[in-house]
Write a protein that binds this DNA or RNA. Structure first.
Lengths: 252, 252
DNA sequence: ATCATAGTCGTCTCCCTGACGATAAACACT
DNA sequence: AGTGTTTATCGTCAGGGAGACGACTATGAT
């Protein structure tokens, strides 16, 4: 028995992406410039319609690949490919959040290692990594003097929620390693925490904590001096996903 | 300029509710019996279509009121009305999760104090509080010998995610008080933790922890003996929403 | 050679937690 | 009235983890 389509209002469903990475000691998000109305010319989060035969997670992974070329890290195959972490964030469906029609957007959060350069359909000027505090600042100007209008739609809210999720989740999970290349040093991992939280951490206590948590880090045997100073051991992310006890975020 | 509706596939958007409460020392969820196909006669989570002019949170609050009579606790007016806690849980949109059509369901989690009796459109036999482990058990029989088929659609997955959210969230927030009446004792709060986590907690250490955390509990001055034994102090939930350091869930 | 930089190992103290003894105040029996 | 049971509440003690910070190591830059 077919269902009566007049019994419910039709919605458009999209996925929007909060793609975070750490560049030059600051937490950055991927923003794309809108080519069409509404909010034409303004920066927005990448996203698009969910297709008829597509899962929500599939749609998010497809959009992520289209915008960045990143593949999604398979949770079943831990920590070897160069893929990103992807998880559902929240869903935004206020009537009027899109002036054209009723749109429900399922936002996703992606965490990626530092990437060479963004690409949005091949046009680099229409996509960029921007520090999140710059994207969330109201009525201000970016580094190049270009006015940084608030993000289109309710994307400032979505970005803010995504950043908050990332900040809290690296406390009790090993997710911070998703910001690192496959092999990394303790200091590089610490700088990830410092950039995401916006605080300074004691290198000695941090080193003790992460190397003392079983399953968090696995030494690869190699060393590197790419950060300068004394050579540092290289590690891979271990199998542990939950940190117990958690990493403590300093007060305020 | 109107938008081209042929550019995207139409979806139906619903809200489904995981309504949790603690009854007789066990964590229970609200289930309603389906009156129509598909899954006719099977138990499901309460829910319904989002209306054209309605916010997602509004739709969830409306469904909650329709099913239980509960109003939603206003986060701005802390802890005085008898309302429930309501928050968005996650969104489920697999193609084929509803055989009739493409439906995206925005699941919400509600936590409520123990209630007299459920009501589903006035028909009590079509709604009940069931222990979650009973609803999540496959191929088994309930207390009354009635077969407890798995929940309809993907609702077992949704319920499982909601329970997991509640279990982890009472660790680091004061959310467990949402399961309690406006005034409650430390022992009653402890029994909430024990029911949700399914563990036994040391009453002395629990008492020290909750009374020693600033802003968690506010004594009302009254006492009660409704649990038997020595009279216990009555408390209200304090203003603090985050518990730092968190309540520790015992190992395994 | 000296300095700056980053990494790594230790130490000390404080606080929180788990384990558990002891006392207090109600009720239900006899 | 006394005794047992139940629940609440206070105290004590040992161990683990975190913050603060000293000390030493191994590179490259000047």
């Amino acid at each position: 028995m077919p269902y009566d389509p007049s019994a419910f209002p039709p919605f458009a469903v999209t996925v929007d992406l909060v793609v975070l990475t750490v560049r030059r000691h600051s937490l950055c998000a991927l923003a794309v410039r809108r080519g069409e109305s509404p909010f034409q010319g303004r920066w927005a989060l990448p996203g698009g319609f969910v297709r008829a035969d597509e899962d929500l997670a599939q749609a998010a992974a497809r959009e992520l690949a289209e915008e960045t070329g990143l593949s999604v890290h398979d949770p079943a195959a831990p920590a070897q490919d160069n893929g990103a972490h992807l998880e559902q964030l929240a869903t935004y469906g206020d009537p009027g959040r899109d002036p054209r029609m009723r749109v429900v957007s399922v936002a996703h959060l992606a965490l990626a290692p530092d990437l060479p350069a963004p690409r949005a359909g091949g046009d680099a000027s229409n996509a960029r990594w921007a520090p999140v505090e710059e994207l969330l600042r109201q009525d201000d100007y970016g580094r190049d003097g270009e006015p940084v209008a608030p993000l289109a739609f309710d994307h400032a809210r979505i970005l803010s929620d995504g950043v908050e999720r990332a900040r809290s989740k690296i406390e009790y999970s090993s997710l911070a390693t998703a910001f690192c290349p496959p092999e990394f040093t303790v200091g590089e991992l610490r700088r990830v925490y410092e950039a995401v939280w916006g605080v300074a951490l004691d290198p000695r206590n941090f080193h003790r904590k992460v190397t003392g948590t079983p399953g968090f880090l696995v030494p690869t045997g190699g060393t590197t001096t790419r950060q300068g100073g004394r050579p540092a051991q290289l590690f891979r992310a271990g199998g542990a996903t939950l940190l117990n006890p958690p990493m403590l975020r300093p007060e305020v």
